[in-house]
């Protein structure tokens, strides 16, 4: 168990390292291919009336004049030991984990990201609760009443659900429920109130994005659960369980559902990890100031430290979600033993 954990952890770190290297080179090597010099690259960060001399100064300040490998090394070092940053009125120490300072706003990236995280987490958790309950319940019921009207209707809706792009459903729901009516009968869906400030407003404001996002996932999960249930209910051990006279409820819940849920947990873990790293489309459709919106804004503004930071954060969530999923497997599925 311990060796397995250590092996997986090392794997995770290597993975993050690879992700960081690839992202870094995209932003530094590709523009060079396009013929941009380090000073050119710095010019975009020096404001409206920049002189060539100021661009030169900026290139130096941002470290663009060094070889890419040196810049990458500096970036990695800052994460582990921190870095010093010239604040104008003095040097400030940016303590580890230091993801550098935004080229444009000149604010440290890490606290900025931590600031955005609750928004994305709120969105992901709320939506996940809804889609898990709705999706799994629909899937199980559909499987048990296979071929019924309910099954057909639910599966049709689910199929439609997975076929709708979220920026379309989000837009439509905003227009119908928020913008369109002057009374805002339903939630506004385009503002965020922190949970600690007012839980009721928090939930009210997030209701629309939650439902929109959850609809997409619930549809997929209902299909998965149904397929999984049908498969397990056809297995021999279920027949055995029935044969030995177990009540149907117990067969379904303790044997069928448990086995059918295993793949759902894997997928859920990965989906959730991916969402925590930024629900890009949902957040941009609903203008929620989460990690995903942060990422898009950073990319559009070419703000490299932010892009690096957000990519790493997102990759971190995915990698650790998959790690946790594998560990959970051992608990849920008695056939899996970690060796």
């Amino acid at each position: 168990m311990v060796t397995y954990l250590i092996r997986r952890l090392i794997g995770a770190v290597v993975m993050l390292a690879v992700v960081s290297m690839v992202t870094f080179s995209i932003f530094f090597v590709v523009p060079r291919w396009a013929g941009a010099t380090p000073v050119d690259m710095a010019t975009r960060y020096v404001g409206r009336t920049a002189s060539a001399e100021m661009a030169q100064v900026a290139a130096q300040r941002l470290g663009f004049l060094d070889p890419v490998i040196v810049q990458y090394g500096r970036w990695v070092k800052a994460i582990f030991v921190g870095a010093d940053y010239d604040y104008g009125a003095g040097v400030e120490h940016c303590s580890a984990p230091c993801f550098g300072y935004s080229f444009l706003s000149r604010l440290p990236v890490w606290p900025d990201m931590l600031d955005r995280l609750p928004v994305t987490a709120s969105l992901a958790i709320g939506a996940a609760v809804i889609w898990l309950i709705a999706g799994v319940a629909t899937g199980v019921l559909s499987a048990l009443k296979r071929g019924s009207f309910f099954d057909r209707a639910a599966m049709s809706v689910a199929l439609a659900g997975v076929s709708l792009p979220i920026f379309f459903t989000g837009l439509v729901s905003l227009v119908v429920f928020s913008y369109g009516n002057p009374f805002r009968v339903t939630a506004p869906g385009s503002t965020y109130t922190p949970f600690e400030q007012n839980p009721a407003t928090w939930a009210y404001n997030l209701l629309l994005p939650w439902i929109t996002l959850a609809f997409l996932y619930a549809a997929g999960y209902a299909r998965l659960t149904r397929a999984g249930m049908l498969e397990t209910m056809g297995e021999d051990y279920i027949r055995t369980a029935r044969a030995k006279g177990l009540p149907e409820r117990s067969v379904v819940v303790r044997h069928g559902l448990r086995a059918a849920l295993t793949p759902i947990i894997t997928i859920f873990g990965l989906d959730f990890g991916l969402l925590l790293g930024g629900a890009v489309l949902t957040e941009s459709t609903f203008s929620l100031p989460g990690i995903g919106k942060y990422a898009i804004d950073a990319i559009i503004a070419n703000d490299l430290p932010k892009v690096m930071g957000v990519t790493m954060l997102a990759a971190f969530f995915v990698v650790f979600a998959s790690l946790i999923v594998d560990l959970l497997y051992a608990v849920v599925d008695p056939r899996v033993r970690l060796s």
């Binding site: 960060y45 020096v46 404001g47 409206r48 009336t49 920049a50 002189s51 100021m54 100064v57 900026a58 300040r61 604040y87 104008g88 009125a89």
Partner: peptide
Amino acid sequence: LDKKTFPNGPT
């Protein structure tokens, strides 16, 4: 005047 610290303002 310090455009390194305050890049946005007029010059």
